[in-house]
């Protein structure tokens, strides 16, 4: 991804901005993020340190203060489950919960790659139950696509069969998730 400010350097910093219920994303290179940061700082006083911007990947801080009242925006990544923010994660080096991985997914990729010799995708054991679930979910998704196609082709008899099949798999999936056999 290319930096949206300079359109030259690769964007290494990504920010999600929620303002008045609208979500906007910003993808910046370090240099542009720093410039933006300086601009924000001039407007808001020394709310954060510019140096922290460049302190390397693992010390990466967002370019904006957590709560920017002057702008009435919240521009910090936060886990919806445990409320840990990305800067907090960077500071303590520990996640708060499993959902953090989802919340910080995009920012995590370079960090994880650096920690694991360039690897970013799990290639080992899969828990049997969850693994089965993943497998089922994929099968269901595929069948739903088939169902759509059949309906558009007006093959209603086959579509009904497929629908029953999907229902059966969904029952299996939810039984698995509830811890049954």
């Amino acid at each position: 991804m290319i930096c949206q400010e300079c359109n030259q350097r690769p964007a290494t910093l990504h920010f999600t901005n929620f303002s008045n219920g609208e979500k906007t994303e910003m993808h910046l290179c370090e240099k542009c993020a720093q410039e933006k940061g300086e601009m924000f700082m001039m407007n808001n006083g020394p709310a954060f340190s510019i140096n922290s911007l460049l302190a390397g990947l693992l010390n990466m801080e967002p370019a904006f203060p957590q709560k920017n009242e002057a702008f009435q925006t919240e521009q910090v990544l936060q886990c919806p489950q445990c409320s840990m923010t990305f800067p907090q994660f960077v500071k303590v080096g520990r996640f708060g919960c499993a959902t953090c991985y989802d919340a910080f997914r995009e920012q995590l990729a370079p960090i994880v790659r650096r920690l694991h010799s360039g690897n970013s995708v799990h290639n080992g054991k899969i828990p049997k139950r969850i693994g089965g679930g993943l497998h089922l979910r994929k099968q269901i998704d595929d069948l739903k696509q088939t169902l759509k196609d059949l309906i558009s082709q007006e093959e209603f008899e086959k579509a009904a069969e497929t629908r029953d099949h999907i229902r059966e798999l969904e029952r299996k999936l939810s039984a698995g998730q509830e811890g049954g056999e």
């Binding site: 996640f95 991985y101 989802d102 994880v112 920690l115 970013s120 799990h122 080992g124 899969i126 828990p127």
Partner: peptide
């Protein structure tokens, strides 16, 4: 695992507190 649901992600594998243990 027969009795519990592990925190697991398709891409990141087993989800651990510290990113240095993520995956396996």
């Amino acid at each position: 695992e027969e009795d519990v649901n592990y925190a697991f992600d398709d891409k990141f594998g087993y989800l651990t507190s510290c990113p240095t243990n993520t995956g396996t």
